[in-house]
Amino acid sequence: MNEIGAAVRPFVQIISRIAWITLSASVITGAAFLWLGPPAAAREYHVKSEIGRFVPTAGHGLLQFGGETFLLVLVAYAARRWLRIRL
């Protein structure tokens, strides 16, 4: 019985951690729904084709990816170097 208990324990631990994370995410989701309400047809955003707007192109895509990566590196660098944000 003890052996079974010892074998099962890590799985129970992982499931309990996942349950806590799911619970926290559900609370945040609930708060967002309470704040904005469920999606409504009256507030629908009309756009010709959302998929068409984001058709991937190598030039635009790589530029955006490079730009976002640069921004992230800049924030991390500025935070560490100039704002001295570190543990």
Partner: peptide, 15 residues
């Protein structure tokens, strides 16, 4: 996360 910040690279479905 970096790919998610770049929908013009991935396209909407992959995003």
């Amino acid at each position: 996360l970096l790919l998610l910040f770049s929908p013009r690279l991935t396209g909407l479905p992959l995003h």
